[in-house]
Simulated assay, not measured.
Amino acid sequence: MRIEHTADHEILITSPTSSRSGQRNFRLNLQLGKWWEQHQALGEAFDSNTGFPLPDSFVLSPDASWVSAAKWDALTMAQQDKFAPVCPEFVVELKSASDSIKTLQAKMLDWLRNGAQLAWLLVPKTKTAYIYRPGQPEAEVVEGFDTALPGETVLPGFRLERRELR
């Protein structure tokens, strides 16, 4: 089980993912990992088991994330060994059948409020991607999984091939 908590210390418990969701999450992390192998100097990538204590007291765990080298290297080794007190610049949430879309959309806004620069909510069932950026009142909605999502300036050169997440 994954346990997160809100700023009000409300405990959020998520059951383990289904086989298909686990398969998709693996493929998502594999793509991010391949990009990271070529761009290690830019920062660190993390999987869904990583919890981040955020400035507003939330502790959240995205399905995949990336923290810049500047933020990561500013942490002490002791901070890196525990729940690193840093908000990833890039986060991805992959909706599974048991997830609530409204809860995940709210979570994406929590990430932005705490410092994320690019946040993706991917919904395989409807083949929809919601792209969140700071300062934008609403998420950009991208339909269909036939096109890749670019990492923009946050992850230069990264392109998520969504068709691999079907």
Rank of each mutant, 00 (worst) to 15 (best):
A69F: 01
W36S: 06
P150W: 04
P62A: 06
E44L: 04
Q136C: 11
T153G: 14
S98V: 11
L165Y: 13
G51Y: 00
D47Q: 05
T147I: 13
E4R: 09
R162F: 12
F145Q: 11
S98C: 10
K34R: 01
P53G: 03
S18R: 10
P62Y: 05
A116Y: 05
A45Y: 02
E37P: 02
E93G: 10
A78L: 10
A116K: 00
E37H: 01
S57E: 08
Q79H: 14
P88M: 09
A69W: 03
H39F: 04
K95W: 12
K95Y: 06
E10C: 10
S48G: 15
P124L: 10
D56C: 04
W72C: 12
H5M: 13
R2C: 06
L42N: 00
V123I: 15
A7H: 09
K71T: 07
D99W: 08
R20C: 09
M1L: 14
S15T: 14
D63G: 09
P137N: 14
M108A: 06
G33N: 03
K107E: 07
V141M: 08
Q80K: 12
R24Y: 05
L160E: 09
R113M: 09
S15K: 15
D110E: 07
L75V: 12
L32I: 00
P137T: 02
A64Y: 05
F26R: 12
H5L: 11
E37V: 01
V141A: 10
W72R: 05
P85L: 14
L75T: 07
L12F: 03
A119V: 12
M1P: 09
I101K: 09
W35M: 00
L112C: 00
K127M: 10
L94P: 08
P88A: 01
E140P: 02
P150Q: 11
A74E: 06
P124G: 11
I101Y: 12
P150S: 15
A119Y: 06
A116C: 08
R133C: 03
A119S: 00
L121Q: 09
D146W: 03
P137L: 13
K71W: 07
W35I: 06
A84W: 04
E152P: 07
F46Q: 08
M77N: 03
V123F: 13
S57Y: 07
V91H: 02
H9V: 03
Y130V: 08
Y130K: 08
A45P: 06
D8Y: 04
F90D: 04
R113D: 03
Q79P: 00
S96Y: 14
V67S: 09
L160F: 11
N49Y: 11
K107R: 15
T147F: 13
Q105D: 10
Q136G: 06
L42P: 07
L112F: 01
G135V: 11
L12V: 13
L32H: 00
G144E: 07
S15Y: 12
L30T: 01
S15D: 13
R113S: 09
P137V: 07
Q23S: 15
Q117H: 05
D99I: 12
S21Q: 15
A139G: 01
A64M: 01
G43P: 09
A84N: 14
G151C: 00
A41I: 02
W72A: 05
R20Q: 13
L149H: 05
